Simulated scan of single mutants.
Amino acid sequence: MGNAKSGAVSKELLQDLKLSTKFSEAEITQWYDNFTKQCPSGRITPTEFEAIYARFFPESDAKSYAQHVFRSFDTNEDGTLDFREYVVALHMTSSGKITLKLEWAFSLFDVDGNGYLSKSEVCEICAAIFKLIPKEEVPDLPSDENTAEKRADKLWGFFHKDDRERVAEGEFIDGIMANADAMRLIQYEPSKAK
């Protein structure tokens, strides 16, 4: 028999996603329909993901940031995102729970996936985030945040570590939650229309 209705999300996947994300069956089904229309292969490639990010940040260089976000979402490390990874990523990044978002942010910053952040990883992600900022907005940034390097140094300072030490996930979450500036430095939100 197999999958008699290939156009519909399987009952097993639907139940799994309802439990792991708390999204409704209707939401998951709608996202599945949209996902299969946009990605008939059932998978998003890194190039397709970069194109999606480029549409969100048309005046910026979103490629390196998109690559890091893709890596953090590709939990089975097969080089593509399937529907399950896509929905779990949606949940992690859009859920109202700040700790869930920070757990995802930690995985984004943990470039080598070893469970710790190094200063060089913070520098790498801050550089990618900085590329999202349109050039015309850079002069308006505070003087201690107007380069990727300064932003990385400022962020690293919130963890009270020297350049050779590492930051564990709990330390990362605590350090970010303890300081509004740190929260702002780990993301870029386009300014509202002027």
Rank of each mutant, 00 (worst) to 15 (best):
Gly2Glu: 14
Ala4Arg: 05
Lys5Ser: 15
Ser6Met: 15
Gly7Thr: 10
Ser10Gln: 08
Leu14Cys: 10
Leu14Tyr: 05
Leu14Asp: 07
Gln15Leu: 10
Asp16Ala: 09
Leu17Cys: 07
Leu19Asp: 10
Lys22Val: 02
Phe23Met: 12
Phe23Val: 06
Tyr32Gln: 13
Asp33Asn: 15
Gln38Trp: 09
Pro40Arg: 08
Pro40Ile: 09
Gly42Cys: 06
Ile44Pro: 02
Pro46Asp: 01
Pro46Ala: 00
Phe49Asn: 13
Phe56Asn: 05
Pro58Gly: 05
Pro58His: 03
Glu59Asn: 12
Asp61Tyr: 01
Lys63His: 09
Ser64Tyr: 06
Ser64Lys: 11
Ser64Leu: 05
Ser72Thr: 08
Ser72Met: 02
Asp74Ala: 12
Asp78Met: 01
Leu81Pro: 03
Leu81Trp: 14
Leu81Thr: 13
Phe83His: 01
Glu85Ile: 08
Val87Ala: 06
Val87Asn: 11
Val87Ser: 04
Thr93Asn: 06
Ser95Ile: 03
Ile98Trp: 10
Thr99Gly: 00
Leu100Glu: 02
Leu102Asp: 09
Asp110Val: 08
Val111Phe: 14
Val111Met: 05
Asp112Val: 12
Asp112Ile: 07
Gly113Tyr: 13
Ser118His: 05
Ser118Val: 09
Glu121Ser: 04
Val122Phe: 13
Glu124Ser: 06
Ile125Pro: 00
Cys126His: 09
Ala127Trp: 04
Leu132Glu: 03
Pro134Trp: 01
Lys135Ala: 14
Glu136Ala: 13
Asp140Tyr: 09
Ser143Tyr: 03
Ser143Phe: 08
Asn146Phe: 00
Asn146Glu: 07
Glu149Cys: 02
Asp153Lys: 11
Asp153Asn: 12
Lys154Ala: 12
Leu155Thr: 03
Phe158Lys: 15
Asp163His: 10
Arg164Gln: 11
Arg166Asn: 12
Val167His: 02
Ile173Met: 07
Ile173Ala: 10
Ile173Cys: 05
Gly175Pro: 01
Ala178Leu: 01
Asn179Gln: 06
Asn179Trp: 10
Asp181Cys: 07
Tyr188Gln: 04
Glu189Asp: 04
Glu189Gly: 02
Ser191Gln: 10
Lys192Ala: 08
Lys192Gln: 11
